[in-house]
Write a protein that binds this DNA or RNA. Structure first.
Lengths: 193, 193
DNA sequence: CGAGTTTTGTACTGATCAATCCACAACCAA
DNA sequence: TTGGTTGTGGATTGATCAGTACAAAACTCG
């Protein structure tokens, strides 16, 4: 054994996440990351290997946090339609609270696409898990009678995820909360009974 | 009078637009722009002043081109619902043709937000004009009976623009054309009679 | 022809980029 | 205490960044 770390690794990842979330991948320099985490360059590279590797960690952290929150809402009480409405409300509140930074996954998709590396894998993984949650909810909605039938749960899930992305972009361009709620409401009306 | 330009300014803007569209603003270096346009550094700076100014030109060019195409479809023949369906089909074809680069405006919104400068102004201007076109179409749809009433044309337009953005992001993450068509179809079903 | 004006190519600027090196500090086990 | 091991700070690396300086080239107009 030897000298112990002077910082919490998870807290550092969280700080890096906020830096990337605020400025985007390319525009965030390694110095920005040092400033955000409070670590020296040596510690950053000793712990995370490279800027891209730290970004991948930050992205995975963001995804896990976001999915946990979404899962809590989508598997919570109420009909599927009510849970989806709560999800949209939560998303809009989230945007206003976090200064309209959008979604790190959506922002990264727009900036980098889906590269053929660990970052791309993290993006695909998040998408996949979002769709799993939404598909389950869509299926349950038909059973509990709150959602219309006639569409496959997979298609409904893709539609909901697309709406989520659309709202994220909408928030990024500064649309009002009222407009965003109207969009969410209209989207829900397409699938509710 | 003096020595004439050896290049077409509009063609250079167009080439720069493709470079920015492919790699994003930050990741596109001035050397990339020289390579893409075929110009030397002097010509680029002599003509366009700075990287950001050239980006603004490229963005405006992209916006004008896109709006012209959209206007042609949305003010074309058929009911409003048919024109909107054609718009979505065109968008999806466009994505497949251009290698899933998404929309330059959406990508820029995600990367930079809406900064308080000429670039931000160009983004807001594009959004505004898209909404004008979509609002008109929504209004016409109620009159020609192809769209449902009960929602304000402005809300319907915001919903459509959000769906467009959502599809752009969806394409960026590599979703299938079938999935994208299903989303467009579901979105249309929310507003058609 | 030239005089005047603009474009162009090349070399260069200082700044910043991601990443590394290394001396030293801090700790654990023996 | 000490030997081995790991973490940390600060200086430094070469590459690349956006942007500029300047002289030669290419043109128009007189």
């Amino acid at each position: 054994m030897a000298r112990p770390r002077e910082f919490d690794e998870t807290a550092a990842v969280q700080s890096a996440m906020h830096a990337f979330w605020t400025r985007g991948y390319e525009a965030t320099s390694t110095q920005d990351l040092c400033a955000a985490t409070g670590l020296g360059r040596s510690s950053v590279y000793n712990t995370f290997t490279s800027k891209k590797a730290l970004f991948q960690r930050a992205l995975t952290h963001y995804s896990a946090q976001g999915l946990a929150g979404r899962k809590a809402v989508l598997e919570g009480p109420g009909t599927a339609a009510e849970r989806l409405a709560a999800m949209f409300d939560g998303l809009i509140d989230d945007e206003l609270e976090h200064g309209r930074r959008g979604c790190l996954v959506v922002n990264t998709l727009a900036e980098l696409g889906t590269p053929d590396d660990e970052v791309g894998a993290a993006l695909r993984d998040d998408t996949e898990k979002q769709l799993v949650l939404l598909t389950a909810c869509a299926r349950e909605g038909v059973l509990d009678g709150s959602l219309r039938g006639g569409r496959t749960p997979a298609d409904v899930a893709e539609f909901l995820l697309s709406t989520i992305s659309g709202l994220r972009v909408m928030s990024r361009r500064g649309a009002s909360a009222e407009a965003m709620h109207a969009v969410a409401d209209l989207a829900l009306s397409a699938i509710t009974r």
